[in-house]
Amino acid sequence: MNVTRGFSGRPRVHNPGLPPGQYDARGDWPVLSAEVTPDLAATDWSFRIDGLVERPHTWDWDTAHALPASAYEGDIHCVTGWSKFGVRFGGVSLDAFLDVVRPQGSATHALAHSHTGYTANLPLADLTGGRAWIAWEYDGAPLAPEHGGPARLLVPHLYFWKSAKWIAGITLLDHDEPGFWERNGYHTRGNPWEEQRYSGD
């Protein structure tokens, strides 16, 4: 351990919900996207699942909203160090979308992509079992454009760069294919509890 002379830090708060190396951003919700926030109306939004599925399918705003509503209430963790507690997102569970397209047995990974061209890769297992959503509401209001509105992917158990903003589609694959930050040196999975920030962590 390399102790920094004269550094004591903030008063310690024991918070079992805080992954290692993270701090509580409280009221803040920093925005860290690397691209221009797109001018994307809900009526122009679409979401497609394709790749290794039985029936590729594209939803628009109305057909996506016709699926059963599902909410996430819990915490989110950003690789830059902040975590945010007790956030509320509304949308549809990704399971409901996957039930329509029916993943093939050979599908093991997914590449999510945004209307901006941003991409993020995930193991398929991280997107199923009630752990991932397509979200269009935050705290009961429409999701703001800088936070990914009209709709973003939400995978709250992984670092938040995996939760692709302005989600346009997910392609199922039989191998892992690095996305935008993953090609820029970030960890392929990004589990905050194992502090998987950068490749090699």
């Binding site: 394709d50 790749g51 901006t116 941003y118 392609t171 694959l173 039989d174 191998h175 294919e177």
Partner: peptide, 18 residues
Amino acid sequence: MTETVTGTTTPLTRFAVP
């Protein structure tokens, strides 16, 4: 981006890592 996706087109990437 390598074209290794089976049975579909790779998502268009206007915004890519150099």
